[in-house]
Design a protein around this nucleic acid. Structure first.
Lengths: 208, 208
DNA sequence: GATTTAACTTACCGCTCGGTAAGTTATTTA
DNA sequence: TAAATAACTTACCGAGCGGTAAGTTAAATC
């Protein structure tokens, strides 16, 4: 084993602990929200002490930011996948499905992207606002494409329609997670597209 | 001044203090959410002591329930107003407008109706779930009416469409309150109806 | 084999939390 | 005028919070 390999292994272990912390923190924040999780909660679930967390991170808010960042990256990847579909319809369908699946999986964390936190966490709020904007910019192109294709440009601007769509999805996620109901993302994405984009010409509005 | 009048006056004072507590608590919970507000916060804003709160109420969760109840009653009244409109279109328009206006005013409290709280507040969660259901039952009849009128029964069931509409509105409210943007409820309600219900027959989709 | 360092643990800090027991004060009631 | 009561305040409780300083231990380095 070379020195470089040893260094690599060591870094892996460090990375592993840090990653495990973020991972567990993610689960807890996702379930109980920022204010509902204490540093002790995280430490206990990892069978380490609270002080160990402060060895790896500067504080609770840093851990939360790292968690949010990870969630955002994963969501971005899921959204990006939708762009690989060939038709606009399929892109939008996949976008909605992936967003819903992701949001359902992460429960409170996708909520976190919309929630006002306690007043002392202004920096976290600012951070979340930035992430929200970026998500919107990821989604908007597909909406624009759809609007152009369906020739409904005059009625709504893509900005509002994007808000309405994400709002719709966020709201649905909140409802389902609140009631602990499973989400049939495929069926719902079909319905949403039906409602949002398809003209009602007596029967031929099947999407796929 | 008769005895009865005196009793009445006394009750008014009691009611007044209790009402003032609920009122201030409502503002604070609305701004910072349940976990973000302490009993001391409420007391300080009223220039009384925390212990005084415990004289009037059994605890924090009772105050919160009372606040939620008040919010729910006001929302119910606003929704009920929409039923007085004559046409289905106008009913729906007013419903959406009132819901948005109300939600924007109450900010986090309408959010509270969709948020999972910390795990120790199971009773509050149960209470909130009940309130949410009741709101849905208030809205659904108008949706049903609209579906029948627009003859789009086969495509979506009123249940899902109600969820989508409330989800849409809740999501929008979250976004606007998060970004501290003002909401143009009239314009948006028009757009939502446009998107959800009006057929896209090349140009004649103006609602009103 | 001594020293250093990474990765922790133990033991504490000051603070705030929700909640309570006991005292105070002004007003009614008997 | 004495007793009772409503509407509080003062002063505290134990628990938990985010965070830290100092000690421990096993492995790596010199």
């Amino acid at each position: 084993m070379t020195i470089i390999e040893k260094q690599q292994e060591q870094e892996d272990i460090i990375q592993n602990t840090k990653t495990r912390i973020i991972d567990v923190a993610c689960q807890l924040f996702s379930e109980y929200s920022y204010l509902g999780v204490s540093m002790n909660d995280i430490a206990k679930k990892l069978n380490i002490t609270k002080a160990a967390l402060y060895y790896h991170f500067t504080g609770k808010s840093e851990i939360y930011k790292k968690v949010l960042n990870g969630v955002f990256n994963n969501l971005s990847l899921d959204i990006a996948k939708a762009f690989k579909e060939k038709t606009t319809n399929k892109k939008l369908h996949k976008l909605i499905k992936n967003y819903l699946d992701f949001g359902f999986k992460e429960k409170n964390l996708i909520k976190a992207l919309m929630l006002k936190l306690s007043p002392d966490n202004l920096q976290i709020r600012t951070y979340i606002i930035q992430l929200r904007k970026e998500i919107k910019y990821l989604i908007q192109p597909i909406i624009k494409e759809m609007i152009v294709k369906k020739e409904i440009t005059k009625k709504v601007d893509s900005h509002l329609l994007t808000s309405l769509l994400t709002g719709m999805m966020d709201g649905l996620l909140l409802e389902y997670s609140f009631l602990n109901k499973k989400i049939d993302s495929k069926k719902i994405s079909n319905q949403i597209i039906n409602i949002l984009f398809l003209k009602n010409k007596k029967g031929n509005n099947k999407c796929f």
